[in-house]
Amino acid sequence: MQTFKRNILAVPILVWIGLLVGIPLVFVFVLSFLSRDSLGNIVIQFTLENYQRVVDPIYLRVFLNSVLLALLTGLVTLVIGYPVAYITANLEPKKRALSIGLIMLPFWISSLLRTYGWMILLGNAGIINNTLLALGVLDRPLSMMYKFSTTLVGTAYMLIPFMIVAIFNSVDKLDRSLLEASYDLGANKRQTFFNITLPLTVPGIAGGFTLVFIPALGLFYVSDLLGGGNTIFLGNLINTQVTRGRNRPLAAAFSIAMIIVALLVISLYGKIAKDDREGLFQ
């Protein structure tokens, strides 16, 4: 009875998740095993063909592109985000609030709009090229758009706040007396960072990586706008299969494959951060 009373409070949220996440997920899962006719209508007929196509070399390439993009995004955001998070966590309270505010500020503006912003910045007639041309540094515009790296820049930009905040929390709750103990025992700042700070903020890094990796796997408008469709990623593929390709079962199979990759990353995170009592899952 006691447990029942305690659990009753969880019912609304369970219904909510069940309706909006659980049922659609089951729907996608079932769909991934179905066929379609030439007009794109779903035919209730069991098939594994969709999954066979997922591992088809052409599509596998797309899959690897996405995983590569997500991994690189994680790496780039980590390398840039760690120092930002570390410095922010060590600021005095007022400056720290300002810094966090600035990091969060982009969320107030539509991400689509911000992606267009990057086009204005990086385009052939964009701000960077125009400035460099006017200064005489370049004699013809630098081609910075529609590349894999352009997509990487856009994705990393979009997701870096998650990395920063995750690492910030980790650095912030680091016990300062541990650093003092390290200095006291004869370690210099560099040794203290690599021996104490870095290992103790691994849960934050893993959390940030998970928060960045998973959305990076599925973002499609960034690569559409900045990558110009030159490199196809999972998100684009699923999007086109649903809208133009009229192959919803195949899109469903790709979605399931993507979820599996995401789950793998999350379980990896769970292993790394299992001792961390304030991790993402607590």
């Binding site: 007396s177 025992l185 210099n188």
Partner: peptide, 29 residues
Amino acid sequence: APHKRNVNTVFQNYALFPHLNVYDNIAYG
């Protein structure tokens, strides 16, 4: 700097490094 002084501190909360075992904690210095 503290790391160049030949004095050592036992901190109030002990400040043992939580990710290192007893041996590695003691061997740290």
